[in-house]
Design a protein around this nucleic acid. Sequence first.
RNA 1: GGGGCUGUAGCUCAGUGGUAGAGCAUCUGCCUUUUAAGCAGAGGGUCGAUGGUUCGAUCCCAUCCAGCCUCACCA
Length: 491
Amino acid sequence: MRRRREEYQRLLERGVNPYPYRFDVTATASDILDRFRDEDGPWEVSVAGRIMTMRRMGKATFAHIQDHTARIQIYLKSDDLGTEVYETVRLLDIGDIVGVEGTVFRTRTGEISVHARSLTLLAKSLRPLPVPKEKRDEAGNRVVYDPFTDKELRYRKRALDLLLNPDVRRVFIKRTEIVRALRSFLDARGYLEVETPILQPVYGGATARPFVTHHNALDIPLYLRIADELYLKRLLIGGFEGVYEIGKDFRNEGMDRNHNPEFTMLELYVAYKDYAWMMEFTEEMIIAVNRSVNGSDTITVGGTELSFAPPFRRIPMRAAIAEYTGESIDGLDEDGLRAAARRLGVDVEGQAGPGRVIDAIFSARVEEHLVQPTFITDYPIELSPLAKRHRSLPGTVERFELYVHRMEIANAFSELNDPLDQRERFLEQARLRARGDEEAMTTDEDFLEMLEYGMPPAAGLGIGIDRLTMLLTGSPSIRDVILFPTMRPER
RNA sequence: GGGGCUGUAGCUCAGUGGUAGAGCAUCUGCCUUUUAAGCAGAGGGUCGAUGGUUCGAUCCCAUCCAGCCUCACCA
């Protein structure tokens, strides 16, 4: 670092600006590598990138520069650059960003390279970049020595992670492709992408603890949204018939492999449809997105082959419990359910209602089996205060979740649009809250008022974009698919 | 929150109750088609932090900080 500061000074003394304004590029590294043909003769290019390797040999230097597409070797020769410029070359370091103009050629060892006619320093790097050495083995595989792998450093200094680990770069490119594929799937069907408030005076749409902030001018607390749901439903009331939003939600809860305090959610609401329709739609969309980013209906995640061939399995929650535990819970009251949970060795908190008991059994004994894409349907009513009562199964709502690789990917229901029923459900949540359930939903009076004007029957869907990305990129942790995951501050 | 593991040079890691090492990176010299370039030489560390035990601690003990794994909680 100190030495590089000195180089900075020496560059200034030589009249070289270490941070110039502009450099015009005519080709990327991969353009050059893909298009070069020996028989075509000299090809003039202008490329720019960061120096990642350097081999100095007296009056000549070989280096690799990396741009956003690939690495390309450049050949810097004193005779061609002139001794004056070559003195500047001597002051270059790994990590510096340079622009090179020259001709494409193939070296004696066969590597396509750029023979520099001129070189421009574009940005001096003042810190040493931990670039690992690498080579190709006989089979042409990339072998990296002492790679930059420390997870904490990778997450805290993501820029270096992206620079040094091409696989990381690929994951984030794929994340963008996934979002783009979702968006174009929805746009092609005429749904309207909208933006709703992140700062909300009343938080709702999910059961979770919020982040609280304060608005100075209004002198009121505001909450970072935990879900978009209630605002998107207001848009259905307002006459839009298909709306979606892709945005961040915030939940003030624990962090682990599957949870980050801020995460990205897609929510979609479609008028006049129900959850059965939404199930078909979700299946079609997931298949389309996976095909567009992975080019196949079969992917391998953690050594397991997953098939996205339709139709995905569909099974009601109770049937899934019966299948994987051998315990039928049909017709059981709360005491019966508790007894069943005990037999299955599932711990249930003291004051949980019957729905929570079912959920506990499901989480503990069923989820682990849901590897291939599976729709779980028909959830207990008290777990789903915004979902419509099932048309034929008392005590349940018309809701499904999609599980893949033991992970919940999507959640959807026939949306509750009866304002009287909705008020009852909020009251029930208030009772749960009074009993100490911190996550029970708060009553949103403004939403209820809007609902009283009439909301069309509708189906709603939420998809966790981070988890979907984990799945489709085979990433084991949510931090591998969030560019800047939440970290405890360094001290 | 419970349990396990980790923290030593810029990076990846070894090591020891007696003041610290390797490879790469860095610096100096030589080298005009090299590619984990090579050859010769050199510098570089509060051994995560604070206390304790000890004549002496990077090493043993305690606490703290940070991270990873796992369980719990949680969508």
